[in-house]
Nucleic acid binder design. Structure first.
Lengths: 299, 299
DNA sequence: AGGCGAGCATAAGGTTTCCTTGGGGAGTCG
DNA sequence: CGACTCCCCAAGGAAACCTTATGCTCGCCT
């Protein structure tokens, strides 16, 4: 333990010497000067505690210990080369896995195009996707169960803390009313004018935010239905059972049959972001995926 | 090639970090300080081109590249440990092979006791023996076919050049005459008094030296027989076919039935040495063998 | 909420290691 | 015998390494 340990550099030099047959030739092969080879060999012999090669006049011959080291060197250096190759593949995006967690409406629009671009640019990489909403997705991020979490945040909600935040787009929320509804053809409607309508709400956070906005406008919405399933919301609106306020992304991802989308005032919007950990943001495959997500978000 | 290569030290640190779970714990495990671990890890991440671990609050987790490196590290470090163990065995005389070349009369006396002592002291070592005389044995030494050559040299003959010479003993040459010969009971005889005797010579070099000595004494010996086989020489003398001058070692190794040994003047002697190459002299197993040879030579 | 301990990062300093340049000696070949 | 090759040696500067010291963040505990 106390003696200087054998390092990979030593074995590289030894192998070069053994294959080239002389220090000078080994130095040329290694791209350094001959005294450098001399010193490395001396250091290695010091670590080994015995001479490794015997020079008799012109030619060099390995001692028993030298033979043993050369024999081991090939395996060791091969393993090391394999390791370097593997991390180079990871770093060079010829391999790598990115685990994505997305909220439902994000996964149906943003993610497919981003993943397609990723696959086209870096065929060796693999992207997996799981659906979950914050705070579950952030938990998974911190627990190491994914590398990137797609999430959204309403204006009033808290920031993301120490996470790396990559803004993707700000999602304007639109009102959704049945065809034939009095406001179906309006350019925009004040939210207060919908005070007496029955409401159909989305996910818990969306619902909570809806209530906040409505109360700011002076009324408490009467929520008849609440469901995570956006197509279901659209269906309910289309059936004339109420009105809804939905993220534009969610509307786009569903064929809104029997409904009309109208702008609502005051403007309500949510910020859609990709989240990751500071260290992960520097991983090439993660960085590439973030880039493609941002590109996809720009339409 | 241009980026700093991954070294064994890096992998040792990485493995310690992965197993200990923190830089500080790894530092304790490695017997160094925590900043040292920090720096090594930073260097390794630089060489890898991608982060290797992600720190989320309290705990560390390996990235994909980190996992890959740790996976390879065990094999690489195991190979390296095996290599170190093998050379340590060689250096520690728990293993090793010494190939000896000896001239015939040396191998029958010196070598057996020296080899026995070597085997007793270092049971892991192996000694092999081949018989040959100089200059053949020196050729074998230079060609790498043996590590130690036992040889002898008469006074007038050339030095050994750049070889490492370990003097073992100086072998006095004795005259050998048949029982009943006029000088059989003499204390010593001048070599000139044997000018008219029929001679029985040994190996070519011994024979050449015999001629030189006799000519210095003023006569040319009549050589009736010449043979490499010392027992044969003794037998011929015992049969009354002539006289001989033999190394004491050679006489001792044979039961000299029917003959008498007498001192001859001027004193003739040959120097028995062990030869090796400068580099080989530093190989532990060779050094140990040389030591045991010298010890055996001292009776 | 504030204090505390653990853990990591960073900066600075000193030591060691590493590599290069320059010069010398020994062996080999034309 | 001169030219070439190869190696060692010494000295200088550059780089790597490790340590001490310091500050910061986080989780935990009172």
């Amino acid at each position: 333990m106390l003696g200087p340990m054998i390092e990979a550099r030593h074995l590289r030099v030894l192998r070069a010497v053994a294959s080239a047959g002389s220090f000078s030739a080994a130095a040329r092969e290694l791209g350094c000067t001959q005294p450098a080879v001399s010193q490395q060999m001396k250091a290695l012999e010091g670590a080994a505690g015995t001479p490794l090669l015997v020079r008799t006049g012109r030619e060099m011959r390995l001692t028993e210990a030298g033979e043993a080291l050369v024999r081991h060197a090939s395996g060791i250096l091969a393993g090391l080369a394999a390791a370097e190759e593997e991390v180079a593949a990871l770093a060079g995006l010829r391999a790598g896995r990115v685990r994505l967690v997305s909220f439902p409406s994000g996964s149906s629009t943003l993610v497919p195009t981003a993943v397609a671009a990723m696959r086209a640019d870096h065929p060796g990489t693999r992207v997996s996707l799981v659906e979950a909403e914050p705070p579950r997705s952030v938990e998974m991020l911190r627990a190491g169960d994914c590398e990137i979490a797609l999430a959204f945040r309403y204006e009033a909600e808290p920031e993301w803390g120490d996470l790396v935040v990559r803004p993707l787009l700000t999602d304007r929320l639109v009102g959704l009313v049945p065809e034939g509804h009095p406001f179906a053809d309006a350019d925009e409607v004040g939210i207060g004018t919908l005070a007496e309508e029955p409401w159909i709400a989305g996910c818990p956070r969306c619902r909570r935010h809806l209530v906040q906005v409505c109360e700011a406008a002076g009324f408490t919405p009467r929520i008849d239905f609440a469901t995570d399933d956006y197509p279901a919301v659209v269906g309910l609106v289309g059936a004339g059972l109420g009105v809804a306020v939905l993220p534009e992304l969610a509307v786009e991802s569903v064929r809104p049959r029997g409904t009309r989308a109208v702008r609502v005032t005051p403007a309500v919007q949510r910020e859609v972001v990709a989240l990751t950990l500071p260290d992960l943001a520097r991983v090439p495959s993660v960085a590439a995926m973030l880039h493609h997500l941002a590109t996809a978000a720009q339409r």
